[in-house]
Lab assay of single mutants.
Amino acid sequence: VTTYKLVINGKTLKGETTTKAVDAETSEKAFKQYANDNGVDGVWTYDDATKTFTVTEMV
C-alpha cells in the first residue's frame, strides 16, 4: 500500500489530499471521484516519482 497525493488547482477549490491505495490506477479512480464530487473538472497529470496527481481547471 502506497500513499498518493492529489493537488487541486481549481477555479473555486484549491488544496491537497492524500489516499492510500494498492496502485496508482486505484488512487486515480478515488481522486477523480473526489474531484467530481467537488465540482472540479480539469486536466490531469501524474508524477510517478512523487506519486502525485495534479488536476488543473482551465479558467
Score class of each variant (00 low, 15 high):
Val1Lys: 12
Val1Thr: 12
Val1Asn: 10
Val1His: 10
Thr2Val: 12
Thr2Tyr: 14
Thr2Leu: 10
Thr2Asp: 10
Thr2Glu: 12
Thr3Gly: 04
Thr3Ala: 05
Thr3Asp: 09
Thr3Ser: 07
Thr3Val: 13
Thr3Trp: 11
Tyr4Gln: 04
Tyr4Met: 01
Tyr4Arg: 04
Lys5Leu: 08
Lys5Ile: 12
Leu6Pro: 03
Leu6Thr: 02
Leu6Ala: 02
Leu6Gln: 02
Leu6Lys: 02
Val7Lys: 06
Val7Phe: 06
Val7Asn: 04
Val7Met: 06
Val7Tyr: 07
Val7Ala: 03
Val7Ile: 14
Ile8Asp: 01
Ile8Met: 07
Ile8Ala: 01
Ile8Thr: 02
Ile8Val: 08
Asn9Glu: 09
Asn9Ile: 14
Asn9Cys: 15
Asn9Ala: 08
Asn9Asp: 09
Asn9Gln: 11
Asn9Gly: 03
Asn9Pro: 02
Gly10Ile: 11
Gly10Tyr: 06
Gly10Lys: 04
Gly10Leu: 14
Lys11Asn: 10
Lys11Gln: 11
Lys11Ser: 11
Lys11Glu: 08
Lys11Leu: 14
Lys11Thr: 12
Thr12Lys: 11
Thr12Gly: 09
Thr12Tyr: 14
Thr12Val: 11
Leu13Asn: 08
Leu13Ser: 07
Leu13Gln: 08
Leu13Tyr: 14
Leu13Phe: 15
Leu13Cys: 15
Lys14Ala: 07
Lys14Tyr: 09
Lys14Gln: 12
Lys14Gly: 05
Lys14Cys: 14
Lys14Phe: 10
Gly15Arg: 12
Gly15Phe: 15
Glu16Ile: 14
Glu16Cys: 15
Glu16Arg: 07
Glu16Trp: 14
Thr17Met: 15
Thr17Lys: 12
Thr17Ala: 10
Thr17Pro: 02
Thr17Leu: 15
Thr17Trp: 15
Thr17Ser: 08
Thr18Arg: 07
Thr18Met: 10
Thr18Gly: 04
Thr18Ala: 07
Thr18Asn: 06
Thr19Lys: 07
Thr19Gly: 05
Thr19Val: 15
Thr19Glu: 05
Lys20Trp: 12
Lys20Ala: 11
Lys20Leu: 15
Lys20Ser: 11
Ala21Thr: 06
Ala21Tyr: 04
Ala21Arg: 03
Ala21Cys: 08
Val22Pro: 13
Val22Gly: 09
Val22Arg: 11
Val22Thr: 12
Val22Glu: 09
Asp23Tyr: 03
Asp23Gly: 04
Asp23Lys: 04
Asp23Trp: 03
Asp23His: 04
Asp23Ala: 04
Ala24Arg: 15
Ala24Asp: 05
Ala24Val: 13
Glu25Cys: 13
Glu25Trp: 11
Glu25Thr: 10
Thr26Phe: 05
Thr26Ile: 08
Thr26Asp: 07
Thr26Pro: 01
Thr26Arg: 06
Thr26Met: 10
Thr26Lys: 06
Ser27Arg: 01
Ser27His: 02
Ser27Val: 14
Ser27Leu: 04
Ser27Met: 07
Glu28Gly: 09
Glu28Tyr: 15
Glu28Lys: 12
Glu28Ser: 07
Glu28Thr: 04
Glu28Asp: 04
Glu28Leu: 15
Lys29Tyr: 07
Lys29Gly: 05
Lys29Ser: 07
Lys29Met: 09
Lys29Ile: 11
Ala30Ser: 08
Ala30Trp: 15
Ala30Pro: 00
Ala30Lys: 11
Ala30Met: 14
Ala30Arg: 13
Phe31Pro: 00
Phe31Ser: 01
Phe31Arg: 00
Lys32Gln: 06
Lys32Asn: 03
Lys32Pro: 00
Lys32Met: 08
Lys32Val: 06
Lys32His: 09
Gln33Ser: 08
Gln33Thr: 08
Gln33Leu: 09
Gln33Met: 09
Gln33Tyr: 04
Tyr34Trp: 15
Tyr34Ile: 07
Tyr34Val: 04
Tyr34His: 04
Ala35Lys: 02
Ala35Tyr: 02
Ala35Cys: 15
Asn36Tyr: 15
Asp37Gln: 11
Asp37Thr: 09
Asp37Tyr: 08
Asp37Asn: 09
Asp37Gly: 05
Asp37Leu: 11
Asp37Glu: 13
Asp37Trp: 06
Asn38Ile: 15
Asn38Thr: 06
Asn38His: 14
Asn38Lys: 13
Asn38Val: 15
Gly39Met: 06
Gly39Asp: 06
Gly39Thr: 03
Gly39Phe: 06
Gly39Ala: 06
Gly39His: 09
Val40His: 04
Val40Thr: 03
Val40Asn: 01
Val40Gly: 01
Val40Asp: 00
Val40Gln: 02
Val40Trp: 08
Asp41Ser: 12
Asp41Lys: 14
Asp41Asn: 12
Gly42Trp: 06
Gly42His: 01
Gly42Glu: 01
Val43Tyr: 11
Val43Gly: 04
Val43Thr: 10
Val43Arg: 07
Val43Ile: 12
Trp44Met: 03
Trp44Asp: 00
Trp44Phe: 03
Trp44Leu: 02
Trp44Ser: 00
Thr45His: 10
Thr45Arg: 06
Thr45Asn: 08
Thr45Val: 08
Tyr46Cys: 00
Tyr46Pro: 00
Tyr46Phe: 06
Tyr46Ser: 00
Tyr46Ile: 00
Asp47Pro: 00
Asp47Leu: 03
Asp47Ala: 03
Asp47Tyr: 03
Asp47Gln: 03
Asp47Cys: 09
Asp48Tyr: 07
Asp48Leu: 05
Ala49Asp: 11
Ala49Phe: 10
Ala49Tyr: 08
Thr50Gln: 05
Thr50Val: 05
Thr50Glu: 05
Thr50Pro: 00
Thr50Leu: 07
Thr50Asp: 04
Lys51Ala: 05
Lys51Pro: 01
Lys51Met: 06
Lys51Arg: 10
Lys51Ser: 05
Lys51His: 11
Lys51Tyr: 08
Thr52Phe: 01
Thr52Glu: 03
Thr52Val: 05
Thr52Ile: 05
Phe53Val: 01
Phe53Glu: 01
Phe53Gln: 01
Phe53Met: 02
Thr54Val: 07
Thr54Ile: 08
Thr54Gln: 05
Thr54Pro: 00
Val55Cys: 05
Val55Thr: 02
Val55Ser: 00
Val55Lys: 01
Val55Asn: 02
Val55Glu: 01
Thr56Gly: 03
Thr56Val: 07
Thr56Leu: 05
Thr56Glu: 06
Thr56Lys: 05
Thr56Tyr: 07
Glu57Ser: 07
Glu57Ile: 09
Glu57Met: 07
Glu57Gln: 08
Glu57Val: 09
Met58Phe: 13
Met58Val: 13
Met58Gln: 11
Met58Arg: 11
Met58Tyr: 13
Val59Thr: 13
